[in-house]
Write a protein that binds this DNA or RNA. Structure first.
Length: 340
DNA sequence: ATTCAAGGCCAG
DNA sequence: CTGGCCTTGAAT
Protein backbone atom coordinates (compact mmCIF):
# COMPACT_ATOMS: atom_id res chain seq x y z
CA UNK A 1 0.00 0.00 0.00
CA UNK A 2 2.64 2.45 1.08
CA UNK A 3 4.94 1.21 -1.66
CA UNK A 4 2.30 1.83 -4.31
CA UNK A 5 1.73 5.43 -3.22
CA UNK A 6 5.42 6.23 -3.30
CA UNK A 7 6.06 4.75 -6.72
CA UNK A 8 2.98 6.42 -8.19
CA UNK A 9 4.05 9.78 -6.85
CA UNK A 10 7.74 9.58 -7.59
CA UNK A 11 7.73 8.24 -11.13
CA UNK A 12 5.30 10.50 -12.96
CA UNK A 13 6.25 14.00 -11.81
CA UNK A 14 9.95 13.41 -12.50
CA UNK A 15 9.43 13.69 -16.24
CA UNK A 16 10.81 16.70 -18.05
CA UNK A 17 7.91 19.09 -18.62
CA UNK A 18 9.21 19.87 -22.08
CA UNK A 19 10.37 16.57 -23.62
CA UNK A 20 9.07 14.01 -21.07
CA UNK A 21 12.52 12.50 -20.41
CA UNK A 22 12.63 10.61 -17.13
CA UNK A 23 14.70 11.77 -14.16
CA UNK A 24 14.47 15.47 -14.88
CA UNK A 25 16.09 17.97 -12.57
CA UNK A 26 14.91 21.46 -11.72
CA UNK A 27 16.10 24.21 -14.07
CA UNK A 28 14.88 27.76 -14.74
CA UNK A 29 12.06 27.14 -12.27
CA UNK A 30 10.68 24.06 -14.05
CA UNK A 31 11.02 20.26 -13.89
CA UNK A 32 13.27 19.78 -16.88
CA UNK A 33 16.04 17.55 -18.16
CA UNK A 34 19.60 18.67 -18.67
CA UNK A 35 19.24 18.79 -22.45
CA UNK A 36 16.29 21.11 -22.31
CA UNK A 37 18.10 23.29 -19.80
CA UNK A 38 21.06 23.56 -22.18
CA UNK A 39 18.78 24.12 -25.13
CA UNK A 40 16.98 26.95 -23.35
CA UNK A 41 20.19 28.59 -22.22
CA UNK A 42 21.59 28.56 -25.74
CA UNK A 43 18.35 29.89 -27.20
CA UNK A 44 18.53 32.85 -24.81
CA UNK A 45 22.21 33.42 -25.58
CA UNK A 46 22.01 33.69 -29.31
CA UNK A 47 20.90 36.84 -31.02
CA UNK A 48 19.85 34.80 -34.05
CA UNK A 49 16.21 34.42 -34.87
CA UNK A 50 14.66 31.04 -34.22
CA UNK A 51 11.93 30.09 -36.66
CA UNK A 52 9.62 27.17 -37.29
CA UNK A 53 9.56 25.65 -40.76
CA UNK A 54 6.02 24.39 -40.27
CA UNK A 55 3.01 25.87 -38.50
CA UNK A 56 4.61 26.87 -35.19
CA UNK A 57 2.83 24.02 -33.42
CA UNK A 58 5.23 21.04 -33.70
CA UNK A 59 4.76 18.38 -31.05
CA UNK A 60 7.96 18.19 -29.02
CA UNK A 61 7.06 14.73 -27.77
CA UNK A 62 7.24 13.04 -31.16
CA UNK A 63 10.70 12.56 -32.67
CA UNK A 64 9.75 14.55 -35.73
CA UNK A 65 8.61 17.68 -33.88
CA UNK A 66 11.37 17.57 -31.29
CA UNK A 67 13.82 18.86 -33.87
CA UNK A 68 12.03 22.18 -34.19
CA UNK A 69 13.93 24.79 -32.19
CA UNK A 70 11.17 27.39 -32.33
CA UNK A 71 8.52 25.05 -30.94
CA UNK A 72 10.83 23.60 -28.34
CA UNK A 73 11.73 27.09 -27.12
CA UNK A 74 8.10 28.11 -26.98
CA UNK A 75 7.21 25.01 -25.02
CA UNK A 76 9.94 25.95 -22.55
CA UNK A 77 8.29 29.34 -22.13
CA UNK A 78 4.83 27.82 -21.94
CA UNK A 79 5.68 25.44 -19.09
CA UNK A 80 7.09 28.42 -17.21
CA UNK A 81 10.85 28.57 -17.71
CA UNK A 82 12.13 31.93 -16.47
CA UNK A 83 13.90 33.74 -19.27
CA UNK A 84 14.90 37.00 -17.62
CA UNK A 85 17.84 37.12 -15.22
CA UNK A 86 16.49 38.81 -12.17
CA UNK A 87 17.14 41.39 -11.02
CA UNK A 88 18.51 43.27 -14.00
CA UNK A 89 20.79 46.23 -13.67
CA UNK A 90 18.61 49.31 -14.35
CA UNK A 91 21.45 51.35 -15.82
CA UNK A 92 22.32 48.56 -18.27
CA UNK A 93 18.72 48.49 -19.46
CA UNK A 94 18.58 52.26 -19.81
CA UNK A 95 21.91 52.41 -21.63
CA UNK A 96 20.76 49.79 -24.09
CA UNK A 97 17.62 51.82 -24.80
CA UNK A 98 19.62 55.05 -25.07
CA UNK A 99 21.80 53.48 -27.71
CA UNK A 100 18.89 52.04 -29.70
CA UNK A 101 17.03 55.33 -29.50
CA UNK A 102 20.08 57.26 -30.62
CA UNK A 103 20.35 55.01 -33.66
CA UNK A 104 16.67 55.51 -34.45
CA UNK A 105 17.03 59.26 -34.23
CA UNK A 106 20.16 59.28 -36.42
CA UNK A 107 18.36 57.33 -39.11
CA UNK A 108 15.40 59.64 -38.88
CA UNK A 109 17.42 62.85 -39.13
CA UNK A 110 19.99 61.85 -41.73
CA UNK A 111 18.36 59.10 -43.75
CA UNK A 112 15.71 58.53 -46.33
CA UNK A 113 13.83 55.33 -47.09
CA UNK A 114 15.55 53.08 -49.59
CA UNK A 115 13.61 53.16 -52.85
CA UNK A 116 13.20 49.37 -52.67
CA UNK A 117 11.02 49.48 -49.53
CA UNK A 118 7.58 48.05 -50.21
CA UNK A 119 4.56 48.02 -47.89
CA UNK A 120 4.51 44.24 -47.53
CA UNK A 121 8.12 44.21 -46.21
CA UNK A 122 7.55 46.78 -43.50
CA UNK A 123 5.81 44.67 -40.88
CA UNK A 124 8.07 41.68 -41.41
CA UNK A 125 11.06 41.15 -39.21
CA UNK A 126 14.31 42.46 -40.55
CA UNK A 127 16.56 45.46 -40.74
CA UNK A 128 15.51 48.33 -42.94
CA UNK A 129 17.88 49.86 -45.36
CA UNK A 130 18.19 53.58 -45.03
CA UNK A 131 20.06 55.67 -47.52
CA UNK A 132 21.97 58.82 -46.65
CA UNK A 133 20.03 61.87 -47.75
CA UNK A 134 21.91 64.88 -49.08
CA UNK A 135 22.09 68.13 -47.11
CA UNK A 136 19.70 70.03 -49.33
CA UNK A 137 16.95 67.38 -49.47
CA UNK A 138 13.63 68.83 -48.37
CA UNK A 139 11.10 66.30 -47.13
CA UNK A 140 7.39 66.76 -47.60
CA UNK A 141 4.85 65.55 -45.05
CA UNK A 142 4.64 62.06 -46.54
CA UNK A 143 8.41 61.54 -46.68
CA UNK A 144 8.80 62.56 -43.03
CA UNK A 145 5.90 60.31 -42.19
CA UNK A 146 7.35 57.25 -43.92
CA UNK A 147 10.73 57.79 -42.25
CA UNK A 148 9.02 58.18 -38.89
CA UNK A 149 7.24 54.85 -39.38
CA UNK A 150 10.28 52.98 -40.65
CA UNK A 151 12.69 54.21 -38.00
CA UNK A 152 10.22 53.55 -35.19
CA UNK A 153 9.45 50.04 -36.46
CA UNK A 154 13.16 49.43 -36.79
CA UNK A 155 13.59 50.46 -33.16
CA UNK A 156 10.68 48.33 -32.00
CA UNK A 157 11.88 45.19 -33.77
CA UNK A 158 15.39 45.70 -32.39
CA UNK A 159 14.14 45.33 -28.80
CA UNK A 160 15.62 42.26 -27.17
CA UNK A 161 12.38 40.31 -26.70
CA UNK A 162 11.24 40.63 -30.30
CA UNK A 163 13.41 37.76 -31.50
CA UNK A 164 11.37 35.34 -29.39
CA UNK A 165 8.02 36.21 -30.93
CA UNK A 166 6.35 34.20 -33.67
CA UNK A 167 5.68 35.94 -36.96
CA UNK A 168 2.01 36.41 -36.21
CA UNK A 169 2.68 37.74 -32.69
CA UNK A 170 5.19 40.20 -34.11
CA UNK A 171 2.57 41.49 -36.52
CA UNK A 172 0.03 41.80 -33.68
CA UNK A 173 2.48 43.82 -31.61
CA UNK A 174 3.36 46.19 -34.43
CA UNK A 175 -0.22 46.58 -35.54
CA UNK A 176 -1.47 47.41 -32.03
CA UNK A 177 1.40 49.33 -30.49
CA UNK A 178 3.54 50.87 -33.20
CA UNK A 179 1.39 53.93 -33.87
CA UNK A 180 1.12 54.69 -30.15
CA UNK A 181 4.87 54.48 -29.87
CA UNK A 182 5.42 56.65 -32.94
CA UNK A 183 3.06 59.32 -31.60
CA UNK A 184 5.01 59.33 -28.35
CA UNK A 185 8.32 59.64 -30.21
CA UNK A 186 6.96 62.53 -32.29
CA UNK A 187 5.75 64.34 -29.18
CA UNK A 188 9.10 63.74 -27.47
CA UNK A 189 11.01 65.07 -30.45
CA UNK A 190 8.89 68.23 -30.47
CA UNK A 191 9.32 68.53 -26.70
CA UNK A 192 13.12 68.32 -26.87
CA UNK A 193 13.05 70.90 -29.69
CA UNK A 194 11.10 73.17 -27.27
CA UNK A 195 8.13 73.44 -29.61
CA UNK A 196 4.62 74.08 -28.37
CA UNK A 197 2.94 71.97 -31.03
CA UNK A 198 3.91 68.75 -32.72
CA UNK A 199 6.02 69.18 -35.83
CA UNK A 200 8.76 67.59 -37.91
CA UNK A 201 12.45 68.41 -37.29
CA UNK A 202 12.46 71.16 -39.91
CA UNK A 203 9.46 72.78 -38.19
CA UNK A 204 7.01 71.59 -40.86
CA UNK A 205 3.50 70.56 -39.90
CA UNK A 206 2.40 67.07 -38.85
CA UNK A 207 -0.59 67.46 -41.16
CA UNK A 208 -0.26 67.28 -44.94
CA UNK A 209 -0.22 70.76 -46.48
CA UNK A 210 -3.51 70.15 -48.29
CA UNK A 211 -5.39 69.79 -45.01
CA UNK A 212 -7.72 72.72 -44.51
CA UNK A 213 -7.92 73.07 -40.68
CA UNK A 214 -11.12 75.12 -40.83
CA UNK A 215 -12.91 72.10 -42.32
CA UNK A 216 -12.52 70.25 -39.02
CA UNK A 217 -13.48 70.67 -35.41
CA UNK A 218 -10.78 72.92 -33.95
CA UNK A 219 -10.68 70.85 -30.79
CA UNK A 220 -9.78 67.74 -32.75
CA UNK A 221 -6.90 69.43 -34.55
CA UNK A 222 -5.60 70.95 -31.32
CA UNK A 223 -5.84 67.66 -29.52
CA UNK A 224 -3.56 66.09 -32.10
CA UNK A 225 -1.14 69.02 -32.26
CA UNK A 226 -0.83 69.96 -28.60
CA UNK A 227 -2.47 67.76 -26.01
CA UNK A 228 0.18 65.07 -25.53
CA UNK A 229 3.01 67.58 -25.91
CA UNK A 230 1.51 69.79 -23.20
CA UNK A 231 1.49 66.76 -20.88
CA UNK A 232 5.21 66.19 -21.53
CA UNK A 233 5.95 69.84 -20.83
CA UNK A 234 3.81 69.90 -17.72
CA UNK A 235 5.47 66.78 -16.27
CA UNK A 236 8.98 67.74 -17.45
CA UNK A 237 9.53 64.22 -18.65
CA UNK A 238 13.16 63.05 -18.66
CA UNK A 239 14.81 61.03 -21.42
CA UNK A 240 14.96 57.91 -19.25
CA UNK A 241 11.26 58.18 -18.53
CA UNK A 242 10.55 58.63 -22.23
CA UNK A 243 12.62 55.57 -23.17
CA UNK A 244 11.13 53.30 -20.53
CA UNK A 245 7.51 54.31 -21.07
CA UNK A 246 8.11 53.86 -24.81
CA UNK A 247 9.11 50.20 -24.42
CA UNK A 248 6.41 49.59 -21.82
CA UNK A 249 3.93 50.63 -24.49
CA UNK A 250 5.55 48.44 -27.14
CA UNK A 251 5.54 45.30 -24.99
CA UNK A 252 1.90 45.58 -23.96
CA UNK A 253 0.68 42.00 -23.40
CA UNK A 254 -2.96 43.07 -23.38
CA UNK A 255 -3.30 43.53 -27.13
CA UNK A 256 -5.66 41.26 -29.08
CA UNK A 257 -4.84 38.01 -30.92
CA UNK A 258 -1.57 37.20 -29.15
CA UNK A 259 -0.60 33.57 -28.58
CA UNK A 260 -0.27 32.46 -24.98
CA UNK A 261 3.53 32.34 -25.13
CA UNK A 262 3.61 35.73 -26.82
CA UNK A 263 1.55 37.14 -23.99
CA UNK A 264 3.82 35.57 -21.38
CA UNK A 265 6.96 36.88 -23.07
CA UNK A 266 5.62 40.41 -23.40
CA UNK A 267 4.22 40.45 -19.86
CA UNK A 268 7.61 39.51 -18.40
CA UNK A 269 9.44 42.15 -20.35
CA UNK A 270 6.83 44.79 -19.61
CA UNK A 271 7.17 44.00 -15.94
CA UNK A 272 10.94 44.22 -16.16
CA UNK A 273 10.80 47.64 -17.84
CA UNK A 274 8.12 48.75 -15.39
CA UNK A 275 10.30 47.79 -12.44
CA UNK A 276 13.19 49.64 -14.03
CA UNK A 277 11.04 52.76 -14.34
CA UNK A 278 9.96 52.41 -10.71
CA UNK A 279 13.53 52.09 -9.54
CA UNK A 280 14.61 55.01 -11.69
CA UNK A 281 11.84 57.17 -10.22
CA UNK A 282 12.55 56.30 -6.63
CA UNK A 283 16.26 56.87 -7.19
CA UNK A 284 15.73 60.25 -8.85
CA UNK A 285 12.84 61.62 -6.78
CA UNK A 286 13.10 59.72 -3.50
CA UNK A 287 10.96 56.76 -2.55
CA UNK A 288 7.71 58.61 -1.77
CA UNK A 289 7.78 61.17 -4.57
CA UNK A 290 9.14 58.44 -6.85
CA UNK A 291 6.07 56.25 -6.40
CA UNK A 292 3.83 59.16 -7.36
CA UNK A 293 6.07 60.07 -10.26
CA UNK A 294 5.97 56.50 -11.56
CA UNK A 295 2.17 56.64 -11.72
CA UNK A 296 2.25 60.03 -13.44
CA UNK A 297 4.56 58.71 -16.13
CA UNK A 298 2.50 55.54 -16.61
CA UNK A 299 -0.67 57.58 -16.92
CA UNK A 300 0.88 59.45 -19.84
CA UNK A 301 -0.11 56.40 -21.85
CA UNK A 302 -3.70 57.63 -21.53
CA UNK A 303 -2.71 60.90 -23.18
CA UNK A 304 -0.97 58.95 -25.95
CA UNK A 305 -4.09 56.85 -26.47
CA UNK A 306 -6.17 60.02 -26.62
CA UNK A 307 -3.95 61.46 -29.33
CA UNK A 308 -4.10 58.13 -31.18
CA UNK A 309 -7.86 58.16 -31.14
CA UNK A 310 -7.95 61.79 -32.33
CA UNK A 311 -5.70 60.83 -35.25
CA UNK A 312 -7.97 57.89 -36.05
CA UNK A 313 -10.97 60.25 -36.02
CA UNK A 314 -9.18 62.71 -38.22
CA UNK A 315 -8.23 60.12 -40.80
CA UNK A 316 -11.84 58.99 -40.96
CA UNK A 317 -13.01 62.57 -41.51
CA UNK A 318 -10.34 63.52 -44.04
CA UNK A 319 -11.75 61.53 -46.99
CA UNK A 320 -15.21 62.87 -46.19
CA UNK A 321 -14.28 66.55 -45.92
CA UNK A 322 -11.56 66.63 -48.54
CA UNK A 323 -12.08 63.66 -50.86
CA UNK A 324 -10.20 65.37 -53.69
CA UNK A 325 -6.99 65.27 -51.61
CA UNK A 326 -6.98 61.60 -50.71
CA UNK A 327 -3.70 60.09 -51.86
CA UNK A 328 -2.45 56.56 -52.12
CA UNK A 329 1.20 56.25 -51.17
CA UNK A 330 3.37 54.29 -48.77
CA UNK A 331 2.48 56.54 -45.84
CA UNK A 332 -1.27 56.36 -46.32
CA UNK A 333 -1.07 52.60 -46.87
CA UNK A 334 0.74 52.15 -43.56
CA UNK A 335 -1.69 54.40 -41.71
CA UNK A 336 -4.71 52.63 -43.17
CA UNK A 337 -3.29 49.27 -42.08
CA UNK A 338 -2.69 50.53 -38.53
CA UNK A 339 -5.97 52.32 -38.02
CA UNK A 340 -8.37 49.82 -39.60
C1' DA B 1 29.80 26.95 -16.91
C1' DT B 2 32.81 24.99 -20.30
C1' DT B 3 34.32 21.43 -23.31
C1' DC B 4 33.89 17.80 -26.60
C1' DA B 5 32.44 14.13 -29.77
C1' DA B 6 28.69 12.85 -32.63
C1' DG B 7 25.19 13.76 -35.85
C1' DG B 8 22.48 16.81 -38.99
C1' DC B 9 22.31 20.05 -42.65
C1' DC B 10 23.67 22.59 -46.59
C1' DA B 11 26.60 24.08 -50.52
C1' DG B 12 29.72 22.74 -53.87
C1' DC C 1 29.41 12.33 -52.23
C1' DT C 2 32.34 15.28 -49.36
C1' DG C 3 33.85 18.89 -46.30
C1' DG C 4 32.68 22.51 -43.32
C1' DC C 5 29.62 24.54 -40.09
C1' DC C 6 26.15 24.34 -36.52
C1' DT C 7 23.46 22.14 -32.88
C1' DT C 8 23.12 18.90 -29.36
C1' DG C 9 23.54 16.28 -25.10
C1' DA C 10 26.64 14.26 -21.92
C1' DA C 11 30.74 14.67 -19.31
C1' DT C 12 33.93 17.41 -16.90
Amino acid sequence: MLELTISAETEEPRDCKICATKNAGFNYGVQSCNSCKMFFRRALDTSKMITCKKEENCNILDPEGSKCRFCRFHKCVLVGMKFIDSPQDPSAIINDLLHKDWTRNQHFLTGKAASTVKFKDIFERGVFLFEKKSEDTVFDFYEWGVMNHLTCINFETSLSFMKYLSKSDLTCVLKSSHLLYMIFVTAWRSYTAKKEFMCHPDGSDIFPSEVEPSAYNEKLINEIRCYLLSCLICLRVTEEEFLLLGVIIVCNPGIPDLSQTGRMLLASYQSMYGQTLQRYCSFKYGSNAGALRYLEIISLSTAIARCHSAIANFSTLFPIHQPQHVKVNLFTEILAFLIK
